[in-house]
């Protein structure tokens, strides 16, 4: 059923909220690729697991944006999308917490470089917590914030395709890093595909 009612301020906020979510994780995933290829810091297995859960968390806003584009968005779909994002963030946070605890002992240098004093896995944990609160808020007010179907625009299209490019880039990156091995080494130092 196509649903293109007149959008309200709240429904526009709901649509732009989904875009902001997707854009934020586009930024984080791009940052991960920057650390890997510009700073030559290889992502460890736990780093990759956190990346996967970030990608899975983006399913929710992407589902909402695509349903808005088709005009089939409903409050139920809105809640379903953010529910899936909430679950992915919860699981991702568990991986981040383990990663933080592995390096929490005094004088432990941590894994990789720090950004503003915190390592990337700590920032990942913060991002998952923010996502959990964001999803909870969106779900609580789903009736008001659910898009009406007329909010879709070219900025959302660009946002979606940037995400697609980052997914494909991560696929090539993991193929290069893992090579023909079943698992990544705990402390990767080279691209196994080329060694």
């Amino acid at each position: 059923m196509i649903n293109t009612k007149q959008s309200t301020l709240a429904s526009k906020l709901g649509f732009w909220g989904a875009n902001l979510f997707l854009f934020a994780y586009n930024f984080v995933l791009a940052g991960g690729l920057f650390f890997q290829f510009a700073l030559h810091e290889f992502p460890c297995p736990l780093c990759m697991i956190q990346r996967y859960f970030m990608m899975l968390a983006c399913f929710g806003p992407l589902y909402i944006i695509l349903a808005t584009k088709k005009g089939t968005i409903t409050p139920q779909k809105f809640m379903r999308g953010y529910g899936m994002s909430l679950l992915a963030a919860l699981l991702g946070a568990s991986a981040s917490i383990r990663h933080v605890l592995l390096h929490i002992a005094p004088n432990d240098p941590g894994y990789g470089s720090a950004v503003l004093g915190l390592h990337t896995y700590t920032w990942a944990l913060i991002s998952f917590i923010v996502v959990m609160f964001f999803c909870a808020f969106m779900m609580m007010f789903s009736k008001e914030l659910c898009p009406k179907g007329s909010e879709y625009n070219v900025i959302a299209t660009i946002n979606i395709w940037i995400f697609a490019v980052l997914i494909v880039a991560n696929l090539f990156a993991i193929i290069a890093e893992e090579g023909f091995h079943f698992l990544l080494p705990s402390d990767p130092t080279k691209y196994l595909l080329f060694s």
């Binding site: 990608m55 399913f59 992407l62 589902y63 695509l66 088709k70 993991i174 890093e177 893992e178």
Partner: peptide, 23 residues
């Protein structure tokens, strides 16, 4: 195993984006 997971994630998202709908 990471490659298998990324292939599934890539196919899932590309399928959604190119088809424009979620099944």
């Amino acid at each position: 195993m990471d490659i298998i997971i990324m292939i599934i994630i890539t196919l899932m998202f590309l399928r959604m984006i190119i088809r424009g709908k979620v099944s």
